[in-house]
């Protein structure tokens, strides 16, 4: 219950299907929702597999390594609280341990030009208590 309250403070309202993800995130780790029948990953987590229509789930713990699938630099502060934050990098990150899904994340500590499609990244949990989904660069983009 404390977890739900903490998440609600952050504007997050999980269900039983998504709660394990957020619990893991707050504790400083990433997990992915996987079909226990066919092995397909799905994001966001849900109680139903779109591949085989089974409802059994297993949670795969991820080591946090991934690759940038696409990205954008948010430069316009659309809301008052984001005006102090821009520019920041938003990326879709594909995970080595959970092929087929992407997380919507920020890339921290990156210079312009370093964030690129294909760049290797790794999860960073310095802001775990705020349920942020962050990564940092761990290598350069494949040519």
């Amino acid at each position: 219950m404390e977890t739900m309250e903490r998440l609600a403070q952050l504007g997050l309202y999980p269900t039983k299907d998504t709660l394990p993800f957020w619990e893991a995130l707050l504790a400083g780790s990433l997990v992915a929702c996987q079909c226990a029948n066919c092995g397909r990953f799905r994001q966001p987590p849900s109680g139903f597999c779109p591949g085989c229509q089974h409802s059994a789930v297993r949670w795969q713990r991820l080591d946090g390594a991934g690759t940038i699938y696409s990205f954008t630099w948010a430069r316009h502060g659309f809301t008052p609280d984001l005006r102090d934050r821009v520019p920041y990098a938003i990326a879709l990150v594909e995970l080595d341990d959970a092929p087929g899904i992407r997380l919507i994340a920020n890339i921290l500590d990156a210079e312009e030009g370093q964030v690129a499609i294909g760049a290797k990244v790794v999860a960073d949990h310095r802001n775990a208590a705020d349920a942020r989904i962050d990564f940092v660069l761990s290598g350069t983009a494949d040519a």
Binding site: L12, Y13, W22, P44, L82, I90, R132, I133
Partner: peptide, 14 residues
């Protein structure tokens, strides 16, 4: 919406 929750931790708002 529990799905929309996944937009927020990266400040994807627009």
């Amino acid at each position: 919406s529990p799905e929309d929750d996944y937009l927020r931790p990266a400040d994807l708002v627009a």
